[in-house]
Design a protein around this nucleic acid. Structure first.
Lengths: 111, 111
DNA sequence: GCTGCGTGCAACTATCGAGTTGCAGCTTAT
DNA sequence: ATAAGCTGCAACTCGATAGTTGCACGCAGC
C-alpha cells in the first residue's frame, strides 16, 4: 500500500514560520491574517502567502465573515502525514523483526 | 509544552526525492548510496546530498564497512515529528471541545 | 461623504537548495 | 601492481520561494 506521500503537506510543514502560523491557528481557533500579524515578526502579506500555501495543502480553510477572513484548521491532511511517517518507521521495524526471525530460525535447524 | 518543532526533520521530509530515499532505506535496510542510485532516476551525488541532509536531521546514520557506507534508519526523530503533528491536531480538537463545553454549560444555568 | 480597517494583487529582491559534471582518493581482488 | 568499484570534495547552473513594498478595492461606522 503506502499511499503516495502528500507532497503539498510536507512542503507546507517545512517552513518554520508556516508551522508557527499553523500552530497559532490550531490554538487560537479561526483567525484572520491581520490578527496573526500581531503575534509574529513578519508582514501580513507574508502570513497571507503562508496561509495560501497551507490552504492549497488542505491544512486550513478560509471562511469570510464580513470584511475579514478567518482561517480554521483541517485535521485530515495532518493525520495523513502523520500516518506516512508512522508507516516508514514501521517498515524499518518490520525489517528488523524479519531479520531477527531469520536468525532465530537458524538455531533449531542448524546443519 | 509543545517542544519546539525539529526544524531539520521537517525540512528533510519536504523533498519528494529525499522521502523516497528514506523510504527505500526503511524497506531495504542498511543501504549504500551506490545501491540506491540503481533504483532512482538521479545521480549518486544527488543521493549522497540527500543522505547528508537526512543524516544531519538524525533520520539516518552511516556505517562504514570496508569501502562502502551503509545507511540505516533512526526512528526517534521520525516519531518526534509525528508527535508534533499530532499535538497541533489535538490543540485544535481541545479548542473545539472547550467551545462545546461552554455552549453546554450555558443551558443548565441560563439566567 | 470620508475615515479606518481588512483584504487582495503585483513586482521585485535575494537567498536557498536540488541536481549535474568533473576529478581525486581509498579498498578490494586479480 | 593494476584494474574496478565506491566514496568524497568542489564548482557551477537554475529554479523555487520567503519576504518586502506599494497600491487598489471593499465594507464598516461617524
Amino acid at each position: 500500500m503506502m499511499r503516495e506521500a502528500p507532497d503539498a503537506v510536507f512542503t507546507a510543514l517545512a517552513d518554520p514560520t508556516r508551522r508557527r502560523v499553523l500552530r497559532l491557528v490550531a490554538e487560537r481557533g479561526p483567525t484572520s491574517a491581520t490578527l496573526l500579524e500581531r503575534e509574529m515578526p513578519v508582514t501580513r502579506q507574508a502570513i497571507v502567502k503562508h496561509l495560501v500555501v497551507l490552504s492549497r495543502a488542505g491544512l486550513v480553510t478560509g471562511q469570510r465573515t464580513g470584511q475579514e477572513v478567518r482561517y480554521g484548521l483541517v485535521r485530515e491532511p495532518l493525520d495523513e502525514a502523520s500516518e506516512w511517517i508512522a508507516e516508514v518507521g514501521s517498515r524499518w521495524d518490520e525489517r528488523l523483526a524479519r531479520l531477527r526471525q531469520v536468525v532465530l530460525d537458524q538455531k533449531p535447524e542448524r546443519s
